[in-house]
Design a protein around this nucleic acid. Structure first.
Lengths: 249, 249
DNA sequence: CGGTCGTTTGAAGTGGTTCAAGCCTTGTGG
DNA sequence: CCACAAGGCTTGAACCACTTCAAACGACCG
């Protein structure tokens, strides 16, 4: 991997190492990935990432290849190289529900039906189109499998999120969300010791956790007072993962 | 379809008509379905429906066929012919979160990792194994597509559920859940006018909606007083769908 | 007919929201 | 380099939605 690092841009290296660490790609295939010449897309914060192809009705995930007769394809998926995104829905009363966050290395399925769900860049991001990547890949099957493993993990996280919202107190919701993000960031090498970047405002956490921003502030204060973490200037420091997890039961 | 009805058992007919109405199977293929001789499984209320095959890590949905090299298979999926099931998780503090309900005609993916999620029969149920059905089907591709469409709808409902739990009041949560169930039951011909069977206790609704059973009682009372519906003796009557939906915004 | 399970209702408590003000950080222009 | 504005964070006080506890009632089942 040493030789690789000198060849790669940092975000690309991070994303690849993300897939590798999650066991989603064999280590040696990272080299092959680099050989692929694919256009890197850039979006500014706040940009809505829309699907290029009109999707098949209600099939977001499953269209992965079931929809392509006999074929391997990944319609409307992006591989996030750098930056944060979220999947969200704006509700009729002006509120917003954030369904999930996406961090570097994640594979994101863009919604086919436009207004059920929106993918928004929370920071400046760079990503590549999954279908393009597959088309140019020497071993598309392997890469497709890596990608579906990534989206499979996203599915599991969605169940986690349901349990959080339905049956957890505000403090536990926040703590478990932070543990999840910590672990995902750690998997792609974006945690150093007890510290990591977290470019989310209280409002985004609130919209994900079904709370008011004010109460997120208060819960963060509680965590701070208990010495479990400090969130300041878009960074988390002093993150005590073990105690944090214990708090969640 | 008339000729068919005389040949079929009622649950089978209902389930098939469910897939047909949802546009998941061409009408003419219902006949072919009946030709398949597949074992019907029965479970009593409370039974846990476990997966026969150890699953691939974290791949529940996506293993649909991505995991089968070059193949069409549907591991650990059941096609529910009759009765109600739910997907749930028991939390460490004794509480329960119900992720979703399954009604006749639904295709249910059983969890591969046992304790993340459990599928439980809420009533006596009958179902068939999807893989077996496929194996014996003359046109497995078409049937697989129908099934993935069904699970695709389940994915969409999961987003709906997230928004419900995160950003809706108790009354709206309940109303929107009831509208959803009404529509799903209507699609399989299980609604007659403003009436349908709903074999759920307040406790099950509470566990799905993240509320206390007592508060479900109160919300049902409110709906009753507003003349939107009556839920009694495991049946809903006087269900005013339009007003109900309007209440949800 | 009595026991059990589920529903209903009331009263009291609590966790989270809302509103409003002050503060701190960051960015901008003189 | 400072003044100022804007956006986000923080804190307090009042309020409300939902929970918890407890008791009574009703339906179903042996």
């Amino acid at each position: 991997m040493l030789a690789l690092n000198s060849l790669m841009t940092r975000p690309m290296a991070r994303a690849i190492s993300g897939l590798v660490r999650a066991g989603e790609l064999e280590a040696w295939s990272a080299e092959r990935l680099l050989a692929i010449d694919v256009a890197v897309e850039r979006y500014p914060p706040g940009a809505v990432i829309a699907a290029p192809n009109p999707g098949v009705l209600g099939l977001d995930i499953l269209s992965l290849d079931a929809a392509a007769p006999g074929g391997r394809c990944a319609p409307n998926m992006k591989w996030l190289l750098d930056g944060w995104i979220c999947e969200a829905r704006a509700l009729s009363d002006g509120q917003r529900q954030i369904f999930s966050f996406g961090v570097p290395g994640d594979v994101v399925e863009l919604p086919s039906t436009p207004h059920s769900r929106v993918v928004v860049a929370l920071t400046a991001i760079t990503c590549v189109d999954a279908a393009e990547l597959l088309a140019r890949s020497a071993d598309p099957d392997e890469m497709l499998e890596a990608m579906s493993r990534s989206t499979g993990l996203a599915v599991a996280r969605r169940y986690e999120q349901l349990a959080r919202l339905g049956r957890r107190s505000a403090l536990v919701r926040l703590a478990s969300q932070l543990v999840e993000l910590h672990d995902r960031l750690a998997a792609v090498g974006m945690v150093r010791g007890e510290e990591f970047a977290l470019p989310l405002r209280h409002e985004e956490l609130a919209d994900a956790l079904g709370l008011s921003p004010v109460h997120v502030t208060r819960c963060l204060k509680t965590l701070r007072q208990r010495g479990l973490m400090v969130m300041k200037f878009r960074r988390v420091s002093g993150f005590k993962r073990a105690e944090m997890e214990q708090l969640c039961f």
